[in-house]
Nucleic acid binder design. Structure first.
Length: 887
RNA sequence: GGGAUCAUAGCUCAGCUGGGAUGAGCGUCCGCUUGACGUGCGGGAGGUCACAGGUUCGAACCCUGUUGGUCCCACCA
């Protein structure tokens, strides 16, 4: 096999080719295998209407990292993919498309509409999936599911019927949020509150005498929505409000409608607010609805579904709600009942899909009773059975579970799961059934009609962790892969989805759906704004992939960002990561060039140079740290360590150190040891990096070696005690320190690398001199020296040499230029102060009983060693100071 | 109104349950045809970790308060 790579890494072509290979080899596919431990992630199903955006890209990348990591660790890793039918989003999209053709949905009829919808799904539903593939997502596509496929439909019906039978699902007339544009009810979670500038209209209603005549007294209040007065059925005051006590029980004349309404007393009224009087409209305000229930008030619905006034609105019938508002205010003013208008900013509920102001309306809808269901979901998080990462998300979670209200699940849409309830035209019986009933079980009538409504999209997604594994059937997959392991999602859908999956899991399966929820934040633009269509500031992940490669994008999305935090997207960051891909590419290219056609053989222990052992040892700790971080879901921290290791330690130091051994071919054993180490350390680093950058790592891996056919099914590196070489680590770090000192000095003295210099490395310590002696080549190469002299430092400061002091090593550069003695003295003084500070700190720790009792032995030893080191350094610095002052 | 969260280098952010500001990317300055890479190499400048107190031998990290920003929830008509 030829080991040649192009001079720069160009992801184009490579990525698609490798992805196809993985698909062909079925590497993504997971089968039930009792001999292996499963690791499962279910994808948050993207909407079929969706276009891949940065949010998806982040979400998928995190999941892919985890699943690839676990797969390499030897788990039987299943990433269960699928898409969501997204009832309202899709229905809106199709309606709009029909509109372009001049068709409205009713013309087509339900059947015809659904036909169009399925055709649409067939045409566009796969788009998002293909886009996910561009990212490198290692989903088991053989198991792809859809929330409205046959299995999911059965799961939905099963759950609906079961919960209905248990009394958890009921139909009731309650006040719900109505979207007049989408023409459907929506749940509380779908309402978004928006601050809007509005007004307070101060209005008064005349108080009536017992005989119905006007008493001349008025009751004044303020309202932000005067048009709802058409549906007023009372006016309320606080029961203990002295100002109005005498009016409680009396009647008022509702102007414009000429309806008598009572004055009632209810604690809901805040005496301090406004006039302490509230008009009560049970038909169009959730609070008023509750008040109405307590007082048995009639509920009057004054609006049609499109938010125009209906027949109950008298002469305002047919007007839009805002037109009616104007007209009503005008008439009240003419009647002298408008006391004043005041500017007021208030929160208005809008539909999160279309932005329309939501209208509270009383309608017969289906609900899920939450009080019982929520308990296990609450407990699970409280007891730590389900872990939220980051933990701070618990507050959010409990905020919702503690205040949960019944979930309105019926939608007046056609695209979705139709509610499995039928009504008997003859006896009025409601039949809820898994199968379509032929006749009424109560009266035998065949005049049954199915409820026209469909279910909230989230009803089916709530079942996703088990419906995708085959539930309600008792499948091997379900037994093996459930509960799943980690759910990765944005914190913005905790309420819509996460909570609902959790309680559904406990209710239907008797077990949690996953043990960990890993949250990520939003991807914002460079200015920190949300990416949105209206702002036009969205960045298309596919464009980034085309230009920089999926690897660079993936890395960009997971670095420098803690779980749950929002991040900003910078092109500069992507570029930096593209550069990193190129860096690895070139390091690998270099290694392959030197490898030639023969593979290096495993060297004997004693053939390994100190530098080899050093990098092996470093790589070994890297394996331990990275694995640990990844297991704690610290994906960004982990990859940062890999990045630093590859770029700094491996490329900038180790490869440079090894070059002389590669070029001087006399010592075959040494060359072989170097090549072997280069190759094996590179392979380990590639493996660690693979979950993050699957494509470059695979391409290099396959070119570099012939033993294994893919890095993605190779095994994760293991931390091995025997690969620890603390002595060599110490030695090479010492050498690095000295070399850095020389480089510094050279820069300070303005000596370019091309100008090779004699270098005197001088140390008072026998130990160091011997280390330098063993690694003297490095000085030549890395410090650009012509000659290297290692000498004992007897004087502290040399007599006729220029000296620069780095730590406790003196480096003499006989270049004929003198260092500024005063500056040097100043520097030494500072160094002395620093060391004194350090010693004080270490002493503090070592004399602290609590610390001594608690700290692990390794930490103690480390601190003691530091103490020694600092004392020694201090001694030397002081010696040098005295030498200098003697001059 | 309640709650959460953030404030660290010019910019964007890491900083692992108190122990050397350990830092990254970008930017900036100086210097490099060092035979993998200029998508590169070497070196530098730049931080009283928002402010004020407190706990501690020791605080960016814990507590209290202040200021400023972001977000979530909430019926104040």
């Amino acid at each position: 096999m030829s080991r040649e790579l192009a001079k720069t890494y160009d992801p184009a072509g490579i990525e698609d080719r490798l992805y196809q290979k993985w698909l062909d080899k079925k590497y993504f596919h997971a089968e039930v295998d009792e001999t292996k431990k499963p690791f499962t992630i279910v994808i948050p199903p993207p909407n079929i209407t969706g276009q891949l955006h940065m949010g998806h890209a982040l979400d998928e990348t995190m999941q892919d990292i985890l699943i690839r990591f676990k797969r390499m660790q030897g788990y039987n890793a299943l990433w269960q993919p699928g898409t969501d039918h997204a009832s309202i989003a899709t229905e809106v999209r199709i309606i709009n498309k029909l509109k372009e053709e001049g068709i409205n949905k009713e013309d087509l009829g339900r059947e015809g509409f659904l036909e169009r919808a399925w055709a649409w799904k067939k045409e566009y539903g796969g788009t998002i999936v293909n886009q996910l593939k561009k990212l490198g997502s290692s989903c088991d596509w053989d198991r792809e599911r859809f929330t409205m496929d046959e299995g999911c439909n059965r799961a939905v019906k099963e759950v609906f019927v079961k919960m209905y039978e248990k009394g958890y699902i009921y139909k009731g007339s309650r006040i719900i949020n109505w979207c007049p544009v989408c023409n459907t009810s929506i749940s509380d979670a779908e309402v978004e509150y928006e601050e809007q500038a509005g007004h307070f209209w101060h209005i008064r209603y005349p108080v009536l005498n017992e005989d119905g005549s006007e008493s001349g007294e008025y009751l004044e209040f303020a309202t932000t929505r005067p048009e709802t007065m058409l549906g007023d059925t009372a006016v309320a005051v606080h029961p203990e409000d002295e100002r109005y006590r005498h009016l409680i029980g009396k009647e008022l004349m509702l102007p414009l409608m000429n309806r008598k309404i009572p004055v009632i007393a209810d604690e809901y009224v805040d005496r301090e607010f406004g006039t302490g009087v509230v008009k009560i409209t049970p038909g169009h305000d959730p609070n008023d609805f509750e008040v109405g229930k307590r007082h048995d008030l009639p509920v009057i619905n004054i609006m049609n579904d499109d938010a125009t006034i209906n027949a109950n609105g008298g002469k305002f019938e047919g007007m839009d709600r805002y037109e009616a508002r104007k007209a009503i205010v005008k008439e009240l003013e003419e009647m002298g009942l408008l006391v004043g208008i005041e500017d007021h900013v208030h929160n208005v509920g809008t539909h999160d899909r279309c932005g329309t102001t939501v209208e509270p309306m009383v309608k017969a809808q289906w609900f899920v009773r939450m009080d019982e269901l929520i308990k296990p979901a609450q407990q699970a998080v409280k007891k730590g059975e389900i872990r939220l990462v980051p933990e701070s998300m618990q507050k959010n979670y409990f905020n919702w579970t503690d205040n949960i209200r019944d979930w309105c699940i019926s939608r007046q849409l056609w695209w979705g799961h139709r509610i499995p309830a039928w009504y008997c035209a003859d006896c009025g019986e409601t039949v809820v059934s898994r199968t379509d009933p032929e006749c009424c079980p109560k009266c035998g009538s065949r005049k049954l009609s199915q409820d026209p409504d469909t279910l909230d999209t989230w009803f089916s997604s709530a079942l996703w962790p088990f419906s995708t594994l085959g539930w309600p059937d008792d499948t091997p997959e379900l037994r093996y892969f459930y509960p799943t392991d980690v759910l990765v999602t944005g914190y913005d859908i905790i309420f819509f989805w996460v909570i609902r999956m959790i309680f559904s899991g406990y209710e239907q399966m008797g077990e949690k759906p996953f043990h960990t929820v890993l949250f990520h934040g939003l991807v914002r633009d460079a200015q920190g704004r949300k990416m949105s269509k209206s702002l036009g500031n969205g960045i298309d992940p596919l464009e980034i992939i085309a230009k920089y490669g999926a690897d660079a994008l993936r890395l960009t999305l997971v670095t420098g960002n803690a779980p749950g935090n929002d991040m900003r997207f910078y092109y500069e960051k992507v570029e930096a990561n593209r550069n990193f891909a190129n860096k690895i590419w070139n390091a690998s290219r270099f290694i392959m060039m030197n490898l030639g056609e023969t593979a290096p053989t495993k060297p004997a222990q004693e053939e390994l140079a100190p530098a080899d052992r050093w990098i092996i040892s470093k790589a070994n700790s890297l394996v331990r740290d990275v694995t640990e971080n990844m297991e704690k879901y610290e994906l960004g921290v982990a990859v940062q360590k890999i990045y630093d290791f590859i770029w700094d330690e491996f490329c900038d130091w180790y490869i440079e150190m090894v070059k002389p051994r590669l070029y001087e071919k006399e010592d075959a054993a040494s060359r072989n040891a170097a090549l072997y180490t280069l190759k094996s350390v590179l392979i380990d680093a590639l493996k660690l990096l693979h979950p993050y950058m699957p494509f470059v790592t695979e391409e290099i891996f396959c070119t570099l070696q012939d033993e294994e056919e893919s890095i993605m099914v190779s095994s994760w590196p293991l931390y091995t005690e025997s690969k620890n070489y603390p002595e060599e680590e110490h030695a090479i770090e010492t050498v690095k320190e000295a070399i850095r000192g020389i480089r510094n000095a050279r820069t300070g003295l303005n000596v370019p690398p091309s100008k090779k210099a004699q270098v005197f490395v001088v140390s008072a310590l026998e130990e160091k001199r011997s280390i330098f002696e063993k690694n003297r080549d490095f000085f030549r190469v890395l410090a650009y020296a012509s000659e290297v002299h290692i000498q004992e430092d007897k004087s502290g400061i040399g007599e006729d040499a220029v000296s620069v002091v780095i730590a406790d090593v003196n480096i003499y550069l006989p270049l004929g230029e003198l260092v500024d003695i005063e500056k040097e003295a100043e520097r030494l003084k500072k160094e002395e102060e620093r060391l004194l500070g350090e010693l004080k700190r270490v002493d503090g720790m070592l004399s602290n009983e609590k610390f001594l009792a608690k700290a692990p032995e390794s930490k103690l030893a480390e601190e003691r060693a530091k103490k020694e080191k600092y004392s020694r350094m201090l001694e030397q610095v002081r010696e040098q100071i005295s030498h200098l002052s003697g001059k």
